[in-house]
Amino acid sequence: MLGFGDYLLVSVILFFVGAIGVIFRRNLIYILMSLEIMLNSINITLIGLARYSRDTNPQVLILFILVVAAVEVAVGLGIAINLMRVKGTVDVDLFKSLKG
């Protein structure tokens, strides 16, 4: 019998995979895609919640998360284009400082 726990399990694992992507990759485009994976995996928990607590509201939250994800991608790609113009690369080194 399928339960909420299954939804949660899948959701956490996919969230974890997305988070690894953000840490593990240096290319901004890949980081953006990994962020999308993270946000989408949260939606799995929400739809499970909607189904098993018989609540309409989580579905609305999914729509709002979709808005946030869309904004994130649009802004991130804008930054990527700007970075390509300024530096000629879209590679990021999150943990290194600007200098030294």
Partner: peptide
């Protein structure tokens, strides 16, 4: 904000 931001950067 997202639209203006994407426009500004791109």
């Amino acid at each position: 904000v997202g639209v203006v931001l994407a426009f500004i950067f791109a």
